Amino acid sequence: MRFHTRKWVKPEDLNPNGTLFGGRLLAWIDEEAALYTTIQLENSKVVTKYMSEINFMSSAQQGDIVEIGIGVKKFGKTSLTIHSEVRNKMTRETILTVDNIVMVNLGEDGKPTPHGKTKIEFVKDRLSNA
C-alpha cells in the first residue's frame, strides 16, 4: 500500500469529543480514492459505488498528521476495487481501515464504461513510454 496524502488535523476537523470527526476522515478517503482512480484509469469521470465495512481502530487529535494509503485489489471491466488504511503519523497507530472501495469508470454519457486497464500504472512509466 502506498501512502499518497497527508492531512493535518485542524480545529474544524474535530467532533464534540475533541477528536477527528469520522465523517471528515471518510470524506478525505473518498476524495483520495477518486483522485487515485482518476489517475489510474486516466479519466476524470469516476464515481464511488461502494464502501465496505469501515473499521475505526484509534483516533487523532488536533495537530496530529494523518496519512491516507490506497492499494489496488482488483481491476474490473468498468471498475477499480481498492482498499484504504489511514494512520496517525504522530502515534504510529492505524486509525481506520476500509477493505473494499469500488470506483466506477464513467463515459461521456455518465454511464459505466470499460476502462481497458488491467494493472497498476505509474505516471513516471507513462512518461517514459511517451
Score class of each variant (00 low, 15 high):
R2E: 10
F3W: 10
H4T: 08
H4P: 02
R6I: 06
K7S: 09
K7C: 08
W8H: 15
K10W: 04
P11A: 04
P11G: 00
E12I: 08
D13N: 14
D13K: 04
L14M: 12
L14K: 06
N15E: 11
N15R: 06
N17E: 09
N17I: 04
T19C: 05
T19F: 08
T19S: 14
L20G: 11
F21I: 02
G22F: 09
G22D: 07
G23L: 03
G23W: 01
L25T: 07
L25V: 11
A27Y: 02
W28H: 07
D30C: 00
D30N: 05
E31L: 07
E31S: 03
E32P: 01
A33S: 14
A33L: 04
L35T: 01
Y36P: 00
T37V: 00
T38M: 11
I39T: 12
Q40L: 12
Q40T: 07
N43D: 07
N43V: 03
V46H: 01
V46D: 00
V46C: 03
T48E: 00
K49G: 14
K49I: 03
Y50E: 15
Y50R: 14
S52L: 07
S52F: 06
S52H: 08
E53V: 04
N55Y: 10
S58R: 06
S59Q: 13
S59R: 08
A60N: 12
Q61D: 10
Q62R: 08
D64L: 07
D64R: 04
D64P: 06
G69A: 10
I70W: 01
V72M: 01
V72K: 00
V72I: 15
K73W: 00
K74S: 09
G76Q: 12
K77M: 06
K77V: 12
T78N: 08
T78L: 06
S79I: 13
L80Q: 04
L80F: 05
T81F: 03
I82A: 01
I82Y: 02
S84H: 09
E85A: 12
E85T: 15
E85I: 15
E85Q: 15
N88R: 11
M90F: 12
M90T: 14
T91N: 13
R92N: 14
E93S: 12
T94R: 11
I95W: 04
I95E: 02
L96M: 15
L96E: 01
L96T: 12
L96G: 00
V98N: 11
V98H: 05
D99C: 03
V102H: 06
V104S: 01
N105E: 03
N105Y: 02
N105S: 10
L106R: 06
G107M: 05
G107D: 05
G110V: 10
G110S: 04
K111R: 13
P112A: 09
T113A: 15
P114E: 11
P114G: 13
G116D: 13
G116A: 12
K117R: 14
T118L: 05
K119V: 03
K119D: 13
I120A: 05
I120E: 15
E121Q: 14
E121L: 13
F122R: 15
F122P: 02
F122A: 02
F122L: 14
V123N: 05
K124A: 09
K124V: 12
R126P: 06
R126A: 08
R126V: 10
N129H: 11
A130M: 14
